[in-house]
Nucleic acid binder design. Structure first.
Lengths: 157, 157
DNA sequence: CGTGATAGTTTGAAAGTCAAAGTTTAGGAG
DNA sequence: CTCCTAAACTTTGACTTTCAAACTATCACG
């Protein structure tokens, strides 16, 4: 069955393109991709907790501590003790951090969106249906996923 | 335009599922995902050169040297000076390395393939067309990509 | 035989990652 | 009110990935 190969190859290409774009994106922003991903999360709401980042990135809290240390050094975020629950630390994005995100264009996503808009109506519908189908075939459909196209690194879980 | 969001979300889910599966896969094999990827490449043909791995993984040769060092330590591969061109070193997979690959099932890919086979003919055709379409929209269609579903980490390029 | 390009290794440094142990705070049982 | 457990975080120590730059060994060509 050759279609299986075709589909796997296409899927792999999509993954690779995203991976490479992620590198460039982060590099352009002067951060590593991991740092950039974390910063994006903070940026979504303006502030979060270390725990939330750890959970979303599937990484330990210790890792997040180290990661946030670096974002603090780069003045993209600041730590603020929570007043409600003093065990928590709010990670708050700085103006500089916000600009870093904004000034980092995502050529990959832009390209995709631009081309998607150019498609015929039925084509758009087909693509959405297909992508959702594939996601469900990977048992991915219930994973939380913001509408942001950024790959992350790997390592143990 | 809501379809754009839907498509990006689905795409992101696919990426995440792959990412997570990659971690588990490598972990099960007792290697890191980077090591596993490299081992897979060696396994494809039984042997390669450091340069080839570096090129395919988009990392520097120095990185590959370090990586291969670990695969050698774990007895998954051995280094052999090339006889034709003595500058080259062939990275050759060992029996143990081969077993490591074989014993590491890829649940994600298997799941996908299994479900893909269950689809109606027209659905398969649609999925392939859609995936290839998306790949081309990401300018990914000319990237070399084996028919293997594994994500890689990131970092600078 | 030089001389420049190629393939790899070494070295030193930054970053991501975790487990395990430690700190501080919250919240409930008594 | 006190004590104990759980939760949120940090610290420490160790490993891996990654690179740039410097170095070694070889090839290939004039």
């Amino acid at each position: 069955m050759d279609r299986i190969d075709s589909s796997l190859v296409a899927l792999r290409q999509i993954l690779r393109a995203t991976e490479i774009a992620g590198r460039e994106l982060a590099q352009q922003a002067g951060l590593t991709s991991v740092q950039f991903r974390a910063l994006q999360m903070v940026g979504e709401t303006g502030q979060t907790t270390a725990k939330a980042i750890a959970t979303r990135m599937h990484v330990s809290q210790a890792t997040v501590t180290a990661l946030v240390d670096r974002l603090v050094t780069r003045e993209c975020v600041v730590r603020e003790k929570s007043l409600e629950d003093r065990r928590q630390t709010h990670i708050v994005i700085t103006e500089f951090g916000r600009q870093t995100i904004e000034n980092a264009p995502d050529p990959l996503q832009q390209r995709f969106v631009r081309r998607f808009k150019d498609l015929e109506d039925w084509e758009q519908a087909m693509l959405v249906a297909s992508l959702e189908r594939v996601a469900s075939m990977l048992d991915a459909e219930d994973l939380p996923a913001g509408a942001v196209l950024t790959t992350g690194e790997l390592s143990r879980s």
